[in-house]
C-alpha cells in the first residue's frame, strides 16, 4: 500500500534531511497509534502535521525526541538513528526544542529562570551565560519586560511564548510544536503564531502539529495529512489545500470549514 505522495520538489533544504521517518509503528496496548509512517523533514523547512484528533500526529512528534519509544520502523535525526542509550538520547533531545499544548512552564520559576534552566542544568553553561541567553530569547518572543514574572502571572499566549523561548535557549537544530495554540484563547493565538512565523522566516526547521489551517497554508513548506495512524497525503500546501487528491483529505478540510 503506497501513500499518495507529491512529486513536487522540496523548496528548501536540498537533500539535507534533518529528520527521516521510515515505516514508523507505535502501539499503545492493542491500539495502533502509528501504522507505518514515512516522512522527511528537510533543513529549514516548516512541516505541518494535520488531521483529525487521535490520528497519530502528536504521537509521531513525541516519538521524534524519544518521549515515546517506537515499536517498528526507524527515525533518523541528522543522519543517525535515535539512540537507545539513555545518555545519548538525552544529548539528542537537547538538540530538539519541544513546545507543548499545555505550555508546561515550571511554575516555581520566573520566566527568565524557566528559559535559563535548560542551558544551566543540561548544557552546564555559566549562570551569566544562561541569563544572557534567557534575556535574549525573551526579547526575541517579545517578553523582555516579563522576565521577572512567574508563569501564573502571565496570559496563556505569553506562557506559550516563554515556552518557545525556553526551547530556543538550548539553541536547537529543530523545533517540535505539539498543538501550540490549541489551549489558547482566540485572541492570544495570533501572538504565538507570529512568533512561530518569525522563527520560520529565520530558517528554523520546524515540525508543527496544528489545527490552524491558515498557518499551515501560509507558513508551511510541506503538509502531511494524518488519518488513523497513517499519512494519507503529503505535499506542498498548495496541493493539499487547493487540490487534495484523496477524498479523506477533502472531507477533513471541509469539516474544518476550509474552502480553499
Amino acid at each position: 500500500m503506497t501513500t499518495p505522495q507529491s512529486t513536487a520538489p522540496r523548496a528548501k533544504g536540498g537533500n539535507s534531511k534533518i529528520i527521516r521517518y521510515r515505516g514508523v509503528i507505535k502501539r499503545f496496548g492493542s491500539f495502533t497509534a502509528l501504522n507505518g509512517v514515512d516522512l522527511d523533514v528537510h533543513a529549514g523547512e516548516v512541516v505541518c502535521l494535520i488531521g483529525p484528533s487521535g490520528s497519530g500526529k502528536s504521537t509521531l512528534l513525541r516519538c521524534t525526541n524519544g518521549l515515546e519509544t517506537i515499536d517498528g520502523g526507524e527515525i533518523e535525526f541528522e543522519g543517525a538513528l535515535l539512540p537507545k542509550d539513555e545518555r545519548a538520547l538525552r544529548a539528542m533531545r537537547a538538540r530538539m526544542g519541544m513546545v507543548f499544548q499545555s505550555f508546561e512552564l515550571f511554575p516555581h520559576l520566573t520566566a527568565q529562570q524557566n528559559v535559563a534552566e535548560g542551558p544551566r542544568t543540561v548544557q552546564k553553561v555559566s549562570l551569566a551565560e544562561a541569563n544572557r541567553r534567557a534575556v535574549a530569547m525573551l526579547a526575541k518572543v517579545g517578553l523582555a519586560d516579563k522576565a521577572a514574572n512567574y508563569p501564573s502571572a502571565l496570559s496563556g499566549g505569553q506562557q506559550q511564548r516563554v515556552a518557545i523561548a525556553r526551547a530556543l535557549a538550548m539553541e536547537p537544530d529543530v523545533m517540535l510544536f505539539d498543538e501550540p495554540t490549541s489551549a489558547l484563547d482566540p485572541e492570544t493565538i495570533g501572538e504565538v503564531l507570529n512568533v512561530m512565523k518569525a522563527l520560520a522566516e529565520e530558517g528554523m526547521t520546524m515540525v508543527v502539529v496544528t489545527h490552524e489551517m491558515t498557518f499551515a497554508r501560509r507558513v508551511g513548506d510541506w503538509v502531511a495529512v494524518f488519518d488513523t495512524g497513517r499519512i494519507i497525503e503529503q505535499g506542498p500546501p498548495t496541493q493539499i489545500f487547493d487540490a487534495p487528491t484523496t477524498e479523506r483529505t477533502r472531507d477533513f478540510l471541509s469539516h474544518l470549514g476550509w474552502s480553499g
Binding site: 539513555e86 538525552r90 507543548f100 508546561e104 515550571f106 534552566e117 535548560g118 542544568t121 543540561v122 538550548m170
Partner: peptide, 19 residues
C-alpha cells in the same frame, strides 16, 4: 507533563526530579 518538559530539554530523570 512537567517531567516531559524537563526531559525534552535533555534533563535526566534525576535532574528532572531535583530541579
Amino acid at each position: 507533563g512537567q517531567v516531559e518538559a524537563a526531559m525534552a530539554l535533555g534533563m535526566s530523570r534525576t535532574q528532572a526530579l531535583r530541579r
